[in-house]
């Protein structure tokens, strides 16, 4: 089982995720229409590009936008979740060892204690995400089972990873579960709401171009995101 998960399944999951993301990214930009969107994308590539970069960059900075600053609670749990969710898969020592074996590459490795903190923060933030969905009327009204499914798929590799990390019960069982959940996550990314992991950049870039080209950028006004 372990061999299968770390062998052919790993390659399938990685391939589906990367090719899927790339294809959808290309499809997104090919589907933009200057006339339907009412943005002269190609006439002003310079201001469009600057607007796009600024729009992405500002929202990636914790409290970098007016939106984040006016809602500090969600900002904290949002970044608590996403910083770990991006750093842990890429920079955990175990993952790097695995990647070196599989792909012959490895990245910078996180300090083990720091990695623990990040992982627990991801799980705790996910708990607050659920709490928000249950308690706040403005979130509850839009929440569907699908939202919980997405959250469950996203958090499963972290929870199983912790169970393996602390060797709760059968280590090899949790390790296999962890790998399975991680691969499942990779496979569903391009086809579900999780596509936001890359379409976030596309969508933010589009609105950045919109503001950069049409809504003030050419008047010398940077949008106060």
């Amino acid at each position: 089982m372990h061999d299968l998960l770390t062998g052919v399944f790993f390659w399938i999951a990685l391939g589906v995720c990367l090719i899927g993301m790339l294809a959808r990214f290309i499809m997104y930009f090919r589907g933009l229409s200057w006339q339907l969107d009412r943005v002269a994308y190609t006439s002003y590539p310079g201001v469009g590009f600057r607007g796009a970069v600024r729009s992405i960059y500002k929202w990636l900075i914790p409290f970098g936008t007016y939106g984040w600053r006016t809602q500090p609670f969600i900002a904290v749990i949002f970044f608590g979740f996403h910083i770990g969710a991006v750093l842990i898969p890429l920079f955990l020592l175990g993952h790097n060892l695995f990647l070196r074996e599989k792909l012959g590459i490895s990245f910078f490795t996180l300090n083990a204690a720091f990695a623990d903190i990040l992982t627990w923060t991801v799980v705790a933030s996910a708990f607050f995400f659920v709490l928000r969905r249950l308690i706040l009327p403005e979130v509850r009204i839009m929440t569907t089972l699908y939202d919980y499914f997405i959250l469950a798929v996203s958090i499963a590799p972290f929870v199983t990873g912790l169970l393996a990390r602390y060797q709760v019960g059968d280590y090899s069982f949790w390790l296999n579960m962890h790998i399975f959940c991680g691969e499942l996550l990779l496979i569903v990314i391009p086809f579900t709401k999780l596509s936001h992991v890359f379409l976030f950049f596309a969508s933010r870039a589009q609105l950045g171009m919109d503001f950069g080209i049409k809504r003030g950028g050419m008047k010398g006004t940077k949008m106060a995101w």
Partner: peptide, 30 residues
């Protein structure tokens, strides 16, 4: 209904962060 709006619908996280930004939400008893 093309990529821009399609994607907006697809990736909306139902997070509710837009609620407070809307004056009609604020003024109609939230």
């Amino acid at each position: 209904f093309k990529s821009r709006m399609k994607t907006w619908f697809e990736i909306c996280a139902h997070c509710g962060m837009c609620a407070e930004s809307c004056f009609l939400y604020q003024v109609n008893g939230r």
